[in-house]
Amino acid sequence: MPIYEYQCKACGHRLEKLQKISAAPLTDCPSCDASELNRLVSAAGFRLAGGGWYETDFKTSGKKNLAGDSGSGSSSASPGDGAAA
């Protein structure tokens, strides 16, 4: 279930709520009881860590960075290095 952020127009109170996608948005502020609560648009935050599907299945053999590797690849190169601007 996603975590939604809300902010009250009346008092400025902000909160986060774990809700189903199909659930109706909240409208009543728990701080001031006004019906001025709006759902905010925010970036989703997640991280794929460890030796999961991306590391083992989708990278080319020369670019794998598996846990336990002794840093055989170049760690100072960034994805945009070498590209003409």
Rank of each mutant, 00 (worst) to 15 (best):
L26Y: 05
G51T: 14
N38F: 02
Y54S: 13
L37F: 07
G45K: 11
N38R: 06
L37H: 05
S70M: 09
R47H: 06
P2N: 01
S78H: 00
S31W: 01
S72H: 10
A67P: 14
T56F: 04
K20T: 01
S35L: 03
K20C: 05
K63S: 02
T60C: 11
K64L: 10
S61D: 13
E5G: 01
S31L: 09
D69N: 08
S75Y: 08
D69C: 06
D69L: 00
S70Q: 12
G52L: 10
Y6L: 02
A85W: 06
G82Y: 00
I21E: 15
E36T: 14
S78P: 00
S61G: 04
L40Q: 15
G80S: 08
G51E: 13
D69V: 08
A77D: 14
Y4W: 04
Q19A: 09
D28N: 13
R47D: 14
S22E: 12
Q7E: 11
S42R: 10
K20Y: 10
G12W: 01
S42C: 07
V41D: 07
A34G: 11
K59S: 13
S75K: 12
G82I: 05
A77W: 05
S78K: 09
A44T: 14
C8S: 02
D57Y: 03
G45M: 08
A84S: 09
H13F: 06
G51L: 05
G82A: 04
G45V: 08
S72D: 09
Q19R: 06
Y54D: 11
G12A: 03
L18N: 13
A77V: 12
G51D: 15
S75G: 13
G45P: 05
Y54Q: 12
L18V: 09
L40F: 06
A83M: 06
A49C: 08
A67H: 11
W53P: 07
D33M: 13
P30L: 08
S42Q: 12
E5V: 02
P30W: 06
I21D: 15
Q7N: 02
A24Y: 09
L18F: 02
S42H: 11
I3R: 03
G52F: 06
S76M: 00
A24S: 13
A34M: 08
R39I: 08
S42F: 07
A10P: 03
S70N: 14
R47A: 13
Q19L: 15
Y6M: 02
Q7W: 01
A84I: 03
G82K: 01
A83I: 15
K9S: 11
V41F: 07
E16M: 10
A10N: 13
A85E: 09
S61H: 08
E5T: 06
N38K: 06
S31N: 15
S76W: 04
A34W: 01
S75M: 09
N38H: 05
A67K: 15
Y6H: 07
E5Q: 07
T27E: 00
G68R: 00
S42V: 13
F46Y: 13
A67M: 14
Q19P: 04
R47W: 08
F58A: 08
L48C: 09
L48F: 14
L18P: 03
G12D: 05
C11V: 00
S70G: 15
G68N: 06
Q19I: 07
K9C: 09
D81C: 04
